[in-house]
Amino acid sequence: MNNFVFENSSKVYFGEGCVKEYLSNILTSYGDKVMLCYGGGSIKNNGIYDEVVSVLTDSNKKIIDFPGIPSNPTYSKVQEGISLAKENNVDLILAVGGGSVMDCCKAISLGAKYDGDIWSDFWARGGVVNFEPLPLGIIVTAAGTGSECNGGAVITNEELKIKTGRDYPKLNAQFVMLDPTYTYSVPKFQMVSGAFDTLSHIMEIYFSEPDESNVSDDISEALMKNVIKNLRVAIKNPEDYEARSNLMWDATMAENRIIKLGKKTDFQCHQMEHQLGAYTNCNHGAGLAVLHPVYYKHICEVGKKKFAQFATNVWGIPKDNKTEEQLALEGVNALADFIKEIGMPTTLKELGVEENINLKEIAESCFIVGGSYKKLTHKEILEIFEECK
Rank of each mutant, 00 (worst) to 15 (best):
V5C: 07
G15M: 07
Y22C: 07
C37R: 04
N46M: 07
G47R: 03
V52K: 00
K61Q: 10
G68H: 10
G68Y: 07
T74P: 02
S76A: 07
N89S: 15
G97C: 04
G98R: 00
C104D: 04
C104Y: 07
C104R: 09
K106F: 10
L110F: 04
K113D: 00
D117N: 14
G137Q: 13
I138Y: 14
V140Y: 01
A142Q: 10
A143R: 01
G151L: 14
A153I: 07
L160K: 12
Q174V: 15
V176D: 13
L178S: 06
T183N: 01
V192A: 10
G194R: 08
T198N: 15
H201R: 15
E209R: 11
P210C: 13
P210S: 12
P210A: 08
P210Y: 14
D217V: 11
D217G: 04
K225E: 06
N230V: 03
L231T: 10
I235F: 01
E239T: 15
N246M: 07
T252A: 06
R257L: 08
Q268R: 03
C269H: 01
C269A: 11
L276G: 11
G277Y: 02
N281G: 00
N281S: 14
F307H: 10
P318N: 02
M344Q: 04
L348I: 08
L348H: 00
L351D: 01
V353H: 11
I357A: 00
E364L: 02
S365M: 05
E380D: 12
L382A: 09
I384H: 02
F385T: 07
F385N: 09
E386F: 10
